[in-house]
Design a protein around this nucleic acid. Structure first.
Lengths: 221, 221, 221, 221
DNA sequence: TATGAATGAGGCTTCATTCAT
DNA sequence: AATGAATGAAGCCTCATTCAT
């Protein structure tokens, strides 16, 4: 908003009205809209309506719908990764660290349904935009290297079975956490809502932790 | 089907007066198109172009785009469930039956990417159409009851840990099988293609089988 | 319906299933539909749905939508004129006869809103179809000649002012009777429903009778 | 009224950036088209063709066909009522004022056939849109209150018979003026054109004035 | 005589995007 | 930096009508 400037405030170069803030505002609106309706289903007009600014600004800052979507996708990844960093698994025994990671991932996905939906939508669109984004690629590299570190530590201590693959492990954790959110609509429509109550979710999460840690545990120890 | 057809009527130009055939033709085209581009992104014109008939017939038989989509979704579920019925798990020891079910589901999803994509898309649309379809609901009831039978058998024989929940188990199997197909585009874009080679897939599937059976196995036996 | 004929009943020329009845059925449906929705707004499918027969029969008997409309318009005029014939004004004193005619016309229009609406619709369409119908023209000639007879009688007896014009008189009676039905929707939307209650209608009718007879009465008598 | 236009901007190619002008242009075209062909029969493409702008702008300003029709109907009422205001009946003796009102209404309807046709069409559509328009309702309230004033004055002076009802009187005046225009096509098709010549119209109008004033006149005075 | 299948033309509407100021 | 006006391309859908049996 910013109090409307009276005439005389018009410096030669114009005033700044926090363009970064405007962009963030637009991107937040875009994430909501795209997450709700998909890329093709999301409408620029609706995004503009969710915004403090006008439709014109969207084109001014992002070029076109696809550009906005690409930036919104990046932002969604960025927001989510931000939350993950604090985990600090290094201080824990490997199996506990793994349990905590699974548990955290499950809950984290649960708390960020718009992100999950953006990813789902991006998959529907064959990950075209994600491939084009070096930002996202670099954001995710950390997830694997962190896991590699943990696996190395677990193998060294003898707590993990030998031969674990970080990418596979990430896939497994992701599958059990992602599907839970992405497929809730169809799953609950078909099989009822029981698994999506607080109690049901806790059970699913605990069993996911159990499955993954059991899988990683060294049977010889 | 096509009972009204006389012998020798497979003319070069296709059928005439075979409404069921026309409908099937349209639905097959619709599944391809919607699976590729989503509901909003799919164009009636493109569907018609994939068809032996005209756009007009789509409206004649399905009313509107949404009606066609709903029927296509039902057909996609129907096609897939058809393949599942032949499994015949009853003859196997419970843990073997479970292993076979997981393995089959993983492969089956893999072989039906259009179905997976239709379900993803339906989730993007909050399962509106699925909720409205009693056909799909009844198709899926069987999956749970089959699992319930298996669990009962496994518990009775002592092979399964007590207290397994059929819906939960179905959720776990589905998660590991569905995510593999649904998220391949983003996952391989971010983490490479290794898991999606023949070898990678075999590994993922075997580990899924291992995880599920280990989870179900009675530790006291 | 007519009991379905068994094979063997098929005479060479086929059987008759009351084609006139079918036509009447179609025309009645057409009048309802066109009166409700206008010519362009009326749909052949809806007419067929109101019918005991199928859409195909409409084309078989009436050629096209316009042909059906033209016949329906004729039928509407015919139905209405049928009711008018019994009036027998000849036995009454001229002013009483005129009063009766006005009163009757007012009520008669009121009781035949579909006819009024068909005429309104035909006026919207610039009376194209009516001009083409010699049937309707001849049906209406009687109305004027009857009035001419009455005027002649009234002038001869000295009850009517001299110089009355039959067509003008018909116009006046029609105006006060037709508008009452044709414009009820807008009039009551704008000015309330009071004039269209039983009491309001009686008042309007009595005043119409009063206005017309006062106008026709010979002031010198 | 196009205040943003600079002096000398009446360029050959028409205006730019004059939204009110564009809207008026569209509405004028819409009234012509709808009056000619009805709501269902009127084509948006044809309306656009009568316009200085494009079809797209119709949707930009009016949303859809029905929205345009509703606004056109309002405008038609507005145009017509505008002409009525100047009448200034207050200065005349009541019977003269009434005569002038009838005469004026008759001529006014005659001069605004598009308005009459819009009202006919609205009646065909059961006055749906008119009911929804508070603008039109308020426009017409004036007609009744003006008549009430006249009646009060005429009763007070003893020129009018007691007990006249303003709405009824309005109905009578309207009937004789409206029918004349609305039913000209069918009436002249059936009974010839004599009443619709200049001479015929003058006669009809004078007789309408006579009928109404005779009806309103106090017989005791 | 009768019916369901099929059709082409045309109408309404939406949407991303650009222009003028 | 910002806004409302304007636009073209394309999509969905309806309707009268005809075909094949």
């Amino acid at each position: 908003m910013g109090k409307p400037l009276k005439s005389g405030d018009k410096t030669k170069s114009g005033w700044k009205q926090d363009p970064e803030g405007v962009k963030r505002d637009i991107i937040a609106a875009a994430i909501s809209e795209f997450a709700k309706s998909g890329f093709t289903g999301g409408k620029i007009d609706d995004i503009a309506a969710r915004t403090k600014t006008s439709k014109r600004m969207i084109y001014y800052y992002f070029g076109d719908k696809e550009g906005l979507y690409a930036r919104a996708l990046e932002a969604a990844y960025g927001n989510v990764r931000k939350g993950e960093i604090e985990l600090n698994l290094e201080g824990l025994p490997p199996l506990d660290a793994l349990a905590k990671l699974v548990s955290f991932t499950f809950d984290h996905h649960r708390k960020n349904p718009d992100f999950i939906r953006m990813v789902m939508i991006e998959n529907v669109h064959h990950a075209e935009h994600l491939q084009a984004s070096s930002i996202i690629t670099s954001l995710n590299a950390g997830a694997i290297s962190r896991l590699e570190g943990l696996i190395a530590r677990g193998e060294a201590s003898g707590d993990f079975r030998p031969g674990l693959d970080a990418t596979e492990l990430h896939w497994q954790i992701s599958a059990l956490s992602f599907f839970n959110v992405s497929n809730q609509p169809t799953f609950s429509a078909l099989f009822g809502n029981a698994l999506f109550t607080q109690r049901g979710q806790k059970s699913l999460r605990d069993r996911a932790v159990e499955m993954i840690t059991a899988f990683a545990r060294n049977p010889d120890k």
